[in-house]
Computed example of a mutant assay.
Amino acid sequence: MSSSSTAPRKLQRDLENKANHLSKLHKGKPIQTHPHPHPHPHLRKKYTIQLGENELVLKELDLLNEDANVYKLIGPVLVKQDLAEANANVRKRIEYISAELKRLDGSLQDLEEKQHSKREAILKVQQRIQSHQAGKAKA
């Protein structure tokens, strides 16, 4: 077998592998196992809604006098809670949700960068195939 006939097959195989990797990235399936799966838009929406709700609760708590009664719903029961404790809990929740949103955004940016680099690699292989075919056409 001549090396000129194996080159297009190698390029074609390379192109298929890169396209498969891009397809897996696009579907949000991790190519290798890592602790954080790729972000799901539903999860980001859920956290954004929760952040808004908790910020609204914090505003309401800030309007209360120090001696106001505050209740927390635990299952079907309203339990009396200290205002300072309620305030601290809501702030911690906001901090946690904000951190999760930041992590998701970072994961999303990382995924977009990986997709971009895979597209660039595919483009280079396609250009090599075209130049190889153009070289064969001249011969």
Rank of each mutant, 00 (worst) to 15 (best):
S3F: 08
Q50I: 04
E113P: 07
E112A: 08
K27I: 09
P8G: 02
Q133C: 08
R119M: 01
E112G: 03
I122V: 05
K92F: 10
S4M: 13
Q127N: 12
N54R: 04
R103G: 05
K72V: 15
N65P: 11
L15R: 09
A7Y: 07
I122R: 10
K10A: 10
V70M: 11
Q126F: 15
L123T: 13
H36I: 01
E66Q: 02
S4N: 12
I74G: 14
N69Y: 11
K114P: 11
Y71W: 08
I49M: 01
R44G: 10
T6S: 07
T6V: 05
R9M: 14
L64Y: 01
I94K: 03
N17C: 09
D14R: 01
D67Y: 11
H26S: 15
Q127W: 08
L111H: 07
V70D: 00
L83D: 02
L22W: 06
D82R: 05
K136Q: 01
K27M: 12
E16S: 04
N69M: 08
A88I: 03
Q115P: 01
I94Q: 10
P8W: 07
L11E: 01
E60H: 13
D105I: 06
K92D: 04
A139I: 08
N87Y: 00
H38W: 02
D14A: 01
T48M: 05
K45R: 11
H40G: 15
K10F: 15
K102G: 11
A88C: 09
G28M: 13
L58C: 10
L83Y: 11
P8T: 09
P41R: 09
R13M: 08
S5E: 00
E112L: 05
A7R: 05
L63I: 05
L15N: 15
H36G: 15
Q32G: 09
Q12N: 09
N20Y: 14
R103F: 03
